[in-house]
Amino acid sequence: MSLTPDDVRTIARLARLAISEQDIPRYADNLSRILDFVAQLDQADTSHVAPMAHPLSSLTQRLRDDVVTETSQRDLFQENAPQVDAGLYLVPKVIE
């Protein structure tokens, strides 16, 4: 499994990572080696194993009763935000 420089660019864009052009071959090589390592799993015979969505496959999701217990802690949470106004978190403009 070998990643092309374009694959690396795509992955970086999807992850919103800024990478420099000169680092791309190295990333491609490193990431490809990780994928190759994991690809060894393909050799395992799984034809008799049902696919699982979670390693703790014998457990199931616990459900919560529909009750509101949270109260507003807006002021506390917004201390971490770089910019707020009138209760809103402010971000650079995003509009279609």
Binding site: D66, S72, R74, G87
Partner: peptide, 26 residues
């Protein structure tokens, strides 16, 4: 529902901004 799908914050419409957004929602 009265509370959110994965947290216990209220889903009521029209509250002041971000007063019904808890740590899970954030």
């Amino acid at each position: 529902t009265k509370s959110k799908i994965f947290s216990a914050a209220s889903t009521a419409f029209g509250a002041a901004p971000n007063t019904q957004a808890c740590l899970v929602d954030l």
